[in-house]
Design a protein around this nucleic acid. Structure first.
Length: 850
RNA sequence: GCGGGCGUGAUGGAAUGGUAGACAUAUCAGACUUAAAAUCUGAAGGGGCGUGUCCCCGUGUGGGUUCGAGUCCCACCGCCCGCACCA
């Protein structure tokens, strides 16, 4: 008899699915829909194990939903714009377009053998003119609604990539991609007005019950809503046309403790003063550098510059000096603060350094110690005793004092309560070639004019070169030239392209009608949206997901999505990485030399080099990385064991949200198990029916159906697989007749089908299952078959297990208690006495308290 | 610094407040074999001697709640992640 051969099986069943167009998503009224989406990949050129795990999880859900009577939409596409393509063009002289499309072709070839249930007819790349043309249409509609605007802004300039970066693309003062120190530059930029939706984006987080709490919290912190008081301190002597300093504070309750005013280095007053004060100008230059590169290293160092000016204190008392302080930021609040050193560590550090007063405004309930070197900052919910509180409070929590003081200040006309967000508008302009052109024209007469929709897409020119840094669109001989859409005179195109995060902010909506000649088709979008289950990496917790939430709202506002899709992802799952041990030996410099897994022998829990036998240090569970030689290529695994083994293994060993470590022995074991199941299906035998054994097997089958289903429903794929191992062992050992075994194995095929679809089809057909297993309805566990007549109860004495008792499930409590008290262990423990207490948890446990 | 999460065998991990360690890896033993591979069966948290349906200890540490705690509460230790001069 032949043996389990994935190389024969897998292409065969893939062809059957293709021929039957099994995965074609069609909107029909007779079935509920289910939209499952995995975050689409960047076409780097090769798929990796992380992709395999991500897509397999989505595939399990998609196939399961198909078999439970849903129209399933499970699409795939390519996040295809971005700098690596340009970098490759610079390095090797090719064209970003060719590089990208060739990578897409390669990766698709690598993905196809996985047997994913993807509707490839909906595939697109974001660099397809058909896609980015609709993105331009969307941009114009958003422009019309005031959701996009232009402003001068200090931007983060990456000197290596020669482009602007969003705040969130700057990590520790360095470009997220290039790692270069980021500089500040002032440019006219396009911005999405995401902050106008801050409140809604924050409030709607509450409704996202099927998102990880962690992601919701990260977004909440990112949006950063706070309530405080905006008030103006009148200047003692007006200067540079200004007669007051407006500050924002979340702690107006500590106004009594104000000791100085702090201005940002780029506050308008600072800038005006620096114009004729070289020393201050030099100080401000220092601050600008700190903002980017040195911030991380010298975070504790507070520096300031005394302007010599003062403001009047609205509470009476001495005027407050105005300082320029390096820790005050222009782009939050008003760029000016009042400092209360007693209750803010930064202010205190500053005050101590420059000898400014420290005024306690409240004390703990049981402690009068004045603040020394540590600011007193209790939780806002803690009750404290106030000194000269402006609103007249004596004992109150911070929360109460803040609200009371805002009311007081408003009544006195000193200021107004204000809500502030950390979330800032999203700068989308990029000075790059390989991105979606911003569809506007600059006209000397008309200014900035939107391109007409009938002229879309504004296509990228193909004849560009990358031999000099900077944007090839800027230096293209003719591309910029175009008539002004308003007056028809000669004008110039915008040469900035869009941040690639724009491309991925609405692709999920485009998948509902990928070839419509508007961004979406209303009927299709209404049927398929929302995404029922979105799956991807935690690294997208803030940027991609927040931007997508914004875009879904913007698309609703511009009529491209229904209101119900303003929150586009009903459920989000963030999966863990696939890791692999690193094998390293120290070289002569003491630095590690990395060895490929295939060069290492594993014996007795240790690792040795095959060549030379030297012992190798093993670093477990490290992220796969080419530079560490610990990457496992899915293609090699598929060739060696087949796709089903790869799929089974990446799901098996760890819960989906955690990292899973790829081990050669684990993959081997997965392959062996699939072979075992295959042989079981081919060795049913011809045993006669055996009622007792048959019933026992059918009971086990229904239990397996129940448990595996539960695992799939709850994203516990590893649990489902553990149950399938157990079920396989039960079937294998069963003495049931051939009919019952055949039934048991047909169910096995169905239960395994979402994880190992090719093997499942093969078994299903071999055992005479009707049609394709992918189309078979999911088995339903029969509750009656899962009822056990007898239960084994553990008997505890004082909470410790001391024996067990097998009794009829429905035995009356009194009879059970009698039996328990007659147990040897219980009799011994009671030693002739009576139990203090007898706890019977029906069907679970008995505890005797002695 | 702020916020969040996690600590269970050699390893990955399982366990609605109810038999801790399912399932898998690695390990060991047995069967089959001339032998090996493959396959199948079984053992296995640690310790004890009295070898048993035995006893003691055991889920980072210390307390607490409970008839009963890996699970709930408090404090501490360690690790991981996110944010970070946001007034």
């Amino acid at each position: 008899m032949s043996d389990y051969s994935p190389a024969n099986i897998e292409p065969k069943w893939q062809k059957s699915w293709d021929d039957a167009e099994t995965f074609r998503a069609t909107a029909t009224a007779d079935k509920p829909k289910y939209y499952v989406l995995e975050m689409f990949p960047y076409p780097s050129g090769r798929i990796h194990m992380g992709h395999v795990r991500n897509y397999t999880m989505g595939d399990v859900i998609a196939r399961y939903k198909m078999s439970t009577g849903h129209n399933v939409l499970h699409p795939m596409g390519w996040d295809a714009f971005g700098m690596p393509a340009e970098n490759a063009a610079m390095a090797s002289g090719g064209h970003p377009k060719e590089w990208t499309y060739s990578n897409i072709a390669t990766m698709k070839d690598q993905m196809k053998p996985l047997g994913l249930s993807i509707d490839w007819t909906r595939e697109f790349a974001t660099c397809d003119p058909e896609y980015y043309g609709q993105q331009q249409a969307l941009f114009l509609d958003m422009l019309g609604q005031g959701l996009v605007y232009r402003k001068n802004a200090m931007v983060n300039w990456d000197p290596v990539d020669m482009t602007v970066l969003a705040n969130e693309q700057v990590i520790d003062g360095k470009g997220w991609r290039s790692g270069a120190d980021v500089e500040k530059r002032e440019l006219t930029q396009w911005f999405f007005n995401i902050s106008s939706m801050g409140e809604e984006l924050l409030e709607a987080l509450d409704g996202l019950d099927n998102w990880p709490a962690k992601v919701r919290l990260m977004q909440e912190n990112w949006i950063g809503k706070s309530r405080g008081l905006e008030m103006t301190f009148p200047m003692s002597t007006p200067a540079h046309g200004m007669d007051g300093i407006t500050v924002y504070t979340t702690r107006p309750d500590t106004l009594v403790g104000a000791s100085f005013i702090g201005l940002a280095a780029n506050h308008p007053l600072t800038v005006a003063l620096a114009a004729d004060n070289a020393e201050l100008a030099a100080f401000c230059e220092d601050c600008k550098k700190m903002d980017t590169t040195e911030a991380a290293m010298e975070k504790a160092e507070k520096k300031g510059f005394d302007t010599g000016l003062t403001v009047e204190n609205p509470l009476g008392g001495d005027p407050l000096p105005i300082w320029v302080a390096n820790f005050v930021l222009m782009d939050y609040g008003t760029g000016a603060i009042f400092a209360c050193p007693a209750h803010d560590q930064r202010d205190l550090d500053f005050a101590r350094k420059y000898g400014l007063p420290v005024i306690d405004t409240f004390f703990a309930m049981d402690d009068d110690t004045p603040v020394a070197d540590e600011a007193f900052v209790p939780a806002k919910t803690e009750k404290v005793r106030w000194i000269n509180q402006p609103a007249g409070l004596t004992e109150a929590t911070g929360e109460e004092a803040i609200e009371a003081t805002i009311d007081w200040a408003e009544a006195k006309g000193l200021g107004t309560g204000k809500v502030q967000f950390r979330l800032r508008d999203w700068g989308l302009s990029r000075q790059r070639y390989w991105g979606c052109p911003i569809p506007v024209v600059h006209c000397d007469t008309c200014g900035v004019v939107p391109e007409k929709k009938e002229n879309l897409p504004v296509r990228l020119p193909d004849d560009v070169s990358f031999d000099i840094p900077g944007n090839p669109l800027d230096r293209h001989p003719t591309w910029r030239d175009t008539p002004c859409p308003a007056c028809g005179k000669a004008a110039k195109r915008e040469t900035d392209t869009m941040d690639t995060f724009v491309d991925s902010s609405w692709y999920f909506a485009r998948f509902t009608s990928p070839h419509a000649d508007t961004p979406t088709d209303a009927a299709e979008a209404k049927y398929w949206m929302n995404v029922d289950q979105y799956i991807g990496g935690i690294e997208h917790a803030i940027l991609h997901l927040l931007y997508s939430r914004f875009f879904a709202r913007a698309m609703n506002d511009t009529g491209h999505l229904p209101k119900s899709a303003r929150e586009p992802f009903d459920a989000l799952f963030t999966q863990g990485m696939v890791t692999h041990a690193i094998y390293q030996t120290p070289n002569e410099n003491g630095r590690p030399t990395y060895h490929f897994p295939e060069d290492v022998d594993l014996r007795d829990g240790k690792a040795f080099l095959k060549n030379g036998g030297a012992e190798v240090q093993v670093v477990p569970s490290a992220k796969m990385s080419k530079s560490k030689n610990n990457v496992v290529d899915p293609i090699n695994i598929i060739e060696a064991y087949g796709a089903d083994t790869a799929r089974w293994f990446v799901l098996s060993d760890s819960p989906p949200e955690r990292d899973v470590e790829w081990t050669a022995s684990g993959a081997e074991a997965a392959f062996k198990h699939l072979g075992r199941v295959w042989r079981m299906a081919h060795n049913i035998g011809d045993a006669q029916d055996n009622p007792a054994e048959d019933t026992a097997l059918m009971k086990a089958m229904h239990k397996a159906i129940f448990e595996v289903t539960q695992g799939v429903e709850s994203f516990g794929f590893n649990a489902s697989i553990a149950k399938l191992y157990g079920y396989a062992a039960t079937v294998s050992k069963s003495k049931a007749g051939a009919n019952a075994k055949r039934t048991a194995m047909l169910t096995m095929a169905q239960l395994m089908a979402p994880m190992t679809p090719h093997l499942a089809e093969d078994i299903w057909t071999h055992l005479g299952g009707e049609g394709l297993v992918v189309n078979a309805p999911w088995p339903i566990a029969d509750e009656a078959m899962m009822v056990e007549d007898e239960v084994t109860l553990p008997i505890q004495i004082n909470g410790k297990r001391r024996g067990e008792l097998t009794v009829a499930k429905d035995m009356p409590k009194e009879d059970l208690e009698k039996l328990v008290l007659a147990q040897d262990a219980v009799v011994k423990a009671l030693n002739g006495g009576t139990p203090k207490k007898l706890i019977v948890v029906p069907g679970r446990i008995v505890n005797v308290v002695v």
